[in-house]
Each structure stands twice: as C-alpha cells, then as structure tokens.
C-alpha cells in the first residue's frame, strides 16, 4: 500500500508561490490582451467590409479549431526564432515567458472575440441609432453606448472564460516553464513525491476555480434578475 508523505509541501511553499505568481501573471496578461484583441476581432467580424470580416472569422475559427498544446508548441519552437531574427536578441536570453504571454493572448482572443460578439449583438440596435441621432460617430457610439452595455451583459461569461484560461495556463509545462503546475512537478520529481504534489496542485486549482465559478454564477443571476 502506498504511504502518503506530505512533508515536501511545507518547505516547498515559497517556490510554489513563485510558480503561482507566474500562473497569475500569464492569466491576467492574457486576459487583458485577449479581451482587447478580442474586442477588435469582434467589431471587425461585424464590419461591413467583407474582407475584414472574413479575416477576423478566419482568425477566430483557426484558433478555435486547433488544440492549445499544439499552438503552444508551435509558438515555442517558432516564435523565439522569429523574435531573434527581427530584434536580433541573443539566444542567451530567456524568451519563454514572453512567448507564453503572446501565445495565450492570441489564443484566448479568439475565444473572447466570440463572447464579445454575442455581447455586442445582445445590445438592441436602437441604442446605436439613438447615439447616431444624437450626433455621435460610429466609433463614439460603439465606445460610449454599445460596448459598456455589451461588457456588462457578458462580464460573467468573460470571467468563466478566464477561469478556463487559468487552468489552461498549466499547459506551459510543455515548454518547461515554471508556473504553479510546473513547480509542483519539479518538487515532486526532486523528492520522489509526485503523487502528493500533483494532488496538492489539483486541490489548489479546484478550490480557486470553484470559488470563482460560484461567484460568477451568483453575479449572473443578479444580472438576470435586473434585466
């Protein structure tokens, strides 16, 4: 019978916290950049200009149709080479975190874009008309009237997507980046206590995501009651 031994966790906590900070960093940056790029993609997708709408649709559909692990691997193999060639940065520098941030931002943008598009479409068309009739340009109407309402309506969905992003960020282990999950793996391998460390890591992910999901659900119900 396997004997559990949790003694590796307590001394490993500072290292694990360092990993958690990387995880949170990737999550927050990818969320901010993803929502920003996703908003642009969503607006382009609804543009009258067919070519722009097509390009946006192609981007979104491509990223949504490939596994994230594959995208991460491609980017980790390709991007450093590209960055090196363009910016002539020496190979000594560690571009792994930057690559991770870029990858997750671009990938998540495709998912955020679809949520934001639904959010924009949920705003009644009269709102745009009313803003135009009051002398706003298309851009102003979008920024001041449509987007604020769209974001309010879809905030819970955006957060749900962010929770998924928080979990998916663990996939950076394929590039041996020391995020929370990666650190757990390192400590586990070092002390021969992989089972305990992965169980602990799983528990942390579970608790964090479960609490956040519950909050989102409560928020969603409140928004529904409001409308």
């Amino acid at each position: 019978m396997y004997e559990f031994d949790w003694s590796s966790i307590r001394p490993g906590l500072p290292f694990l916290w360092k990993g958690m900070k990387v995880t949170l960093y990737i999550t927050l940056v990818a969320m901010a950049a993803g929502i920003a790029l996703g908003t642009v993609l969503a607006i382009l997708r609804m543009a009258k200009n067919r070519a722009l709408a097509w390009l946006s649709a192609a981007y979104v559909n491509t990223f949504r149709s490939i596994p994230l692990v594959m995208v991460i691997l491609w980017f980790f193999l390709l991007l450093p080479a590209v960055i090196e060639r363009i910016f002539s940065i020496s190979r000594q520098e560690d571009t792994r975190l930057t690559t991770a941030l870029v990858t997750f931002s671009l990938f998540q943008a495709a998912y955020y874009a679809e949520i934001i598009r639904a959010g924009i479409q949920s705003v009644k068309s009269g709102q745009m008309g009313a803003a135009l009739a009051l002398g706003m340009t298309n851009g102003q109407a979008m920024r001041l009237v449509v987007l604020p309402q769209a974001f309010r309506n879809m905030a819970p969905l955006l957060l749900t997507q962010t929770i998924i992003l928080f979990q998916d960020s663990s996939l950076v282990y394929v590039a041996s980046l020391a995020d929370f999950f990666g650190v757990a793996g390192i400590i586990g391998t070092r002390d021969g206590r992989q089972v305990e460390l992965y169980l602990f890591a799983g528990a942390v992910y579970f608790v964090a995501c479960f609490i956040l999901s519950s909050l989102v659900k409560r928020w969603q119900n409140r928004l529904k009651g409001h409308a």
């Binding site: 008309g129 009313a130 009739a133 009237v145």
Partner: peptide, 20 residues
C-alpha cells in the same frame, strides 16, 4: 449626409434610453 451630421433628433419606438 450621415445621421450624426443632420442635426435631427429621434425618439425611438422602445425609447432606446441608454440603460447604463
């Protein structure tokens, strides 16, 4: 002339007030 340059006010069927 685009709507925003016509200086025409409009009241919509569902009022279209800005809820936020």
């Amino acid at each position: 002339l685009p709507p925003e340059q016509r200086r025409i006010g409009m009241v919509f069927q569902e009022h279209a007030l800005f809820p936020h």
